[in-house]
Amino acid sequence: MGKIIEVNDLCFRYYEHDPWTIDSVSLFVNEGEWLSIIGHNGSGKSTLAKCLNGLLLPEEGSVKIGGLDTRDELAIWDIRRQVGMVFQNPDNQFVGTTVKDDVAFGMENHGIPRNDMIVRLDEALKLVQMEEYAAEEPHRLSGGQKQRVAIAGIIALSPSIIILDEATSMLDPQGRQEIIETMRYLNKENNITVLSITHDLEEAIYSDRMIVMNQGKVLREGLPSEIFKEAKMLEDIGLDLPFTVKMRQALSKLGVPLSENALLQEELVEELWTLQSKI
């Protein structure tokens, strides 16, 4: 897999003479990967997300999407066609009076022929399991359903990358799980590259790789199993550990011989069941 996103020595600040909001950040994302970028509020992660689709441009360094530089004015619209963003509040993303109208809106703006639009609309709603709600008014949906509609509108545009910018932070646990499962499916089955910008470590557990940001810099990078070994570091920068990590720590203090690789609840349950069966 090639690198679909390359960030080199990126520096950005909103006002001249202010401290850097993004300070010499370098990272890459492989095609088809799920990368979580985590950090507390104010760590620079959401600003970084806006740099990745050209909403903000580097003051220093570079951001390349599919080999295209975001500062190239001729390439910026091609970049934005590659990158879809799902924001925190789904209500702020709706423009259509029905679900199908809302999903169609982006395609109309991109000049996609009507016959293609109909096919894409049906396929996108099926992928997020919202086809039976096509004629519903968006404001009548639950939070998780609204975000799935927002994702459908992006899928219909056939992006190669989807960025979730705190997209689950306003959802209840069920809605959050719905979005995570939807994105896992799109990532694995459709090979869509996923960037999850979040402070919710329960969401980050599902990623292939994690980057920890603090004060505008990359603090750590590694597999989820590697990052969660540094529990104190995560707590020191104001992040709340996932339930499974806390439970594993508590059980380990009691002498239960657990590995450090069980991050998902089902993995921890399976490991505990295996231990019980040996007693």
Rank of each mutant, 00 (worst) to 15 (best):
L57E: 04
L57S: 10
P58Y: 07
E60T: 15
E60F: 15
G61P: 15
V63F: 01
V63K: 01
K64G: 09
I65M: 06
G66E: 04
G67S: 10
G67L: 09
D72K: 12
A75Y: 09
A75W: 03
I76D: 00
I76Q: 00
I76V: 01
I79P: 08
R81F: 03
R81V: 01
V83R: 02
F87N: 03
Q88A: 11
N89D: 14
Q93D: 13
V95H: 10
G96R: 12
T98Q: 04
D101Y: 15
D101G: 13
V103C: 04
V103I: 10
A104T: 01
A104L: 06
A104R: 08
F105W: 10
F105C: 06
G106W: 00
E108G: 14
H110E: 12
I112D: 01
P113S: 09
M117A: 05
M117F: 04
I118L: 11
V119W: 03
V119D: 08
D122R: 10
E123Y: 11
A124R: 01
A124Q: 01
L127C: 07
L127F: 11
L127I: 14
V128L: 04
Q129H: 11
Q129F: 04
M130G: 10
M130Q: 08
E131K: 12
E132C: 08
Y133C: 15
A134C: 06
E136R: 15
E137V: 11
E137G: 10
P138W: 08
P138F: 06
R140I: 11
S142N: 09
G143D: 06
G143F: 05
G144V: 00
Q145D: 08
K146C: 01
Q147Y: 10
R148W: 03
V149C: 06
A150K: 10
A150W: 10
I151R: 00
I151N: 00
I154E: 02
L157P: 07
P159E: 07
I162K: 04
I163K: 10
L164I: 06
A167Y: 05
T168K: 02
T168E: 00
S169I: 04
S169R: 05
S169H: 05
D172Y: 09
P173N: 05
P173L: 02
Q177D: 12
I179D: 04
I180G: 14
M183C: 14
R184F: 11
N187E: 07
N187K: 06
I192C: 10
T193C: 13
V194G: 09
V194R: 07
H199S: 13
D200T: 00
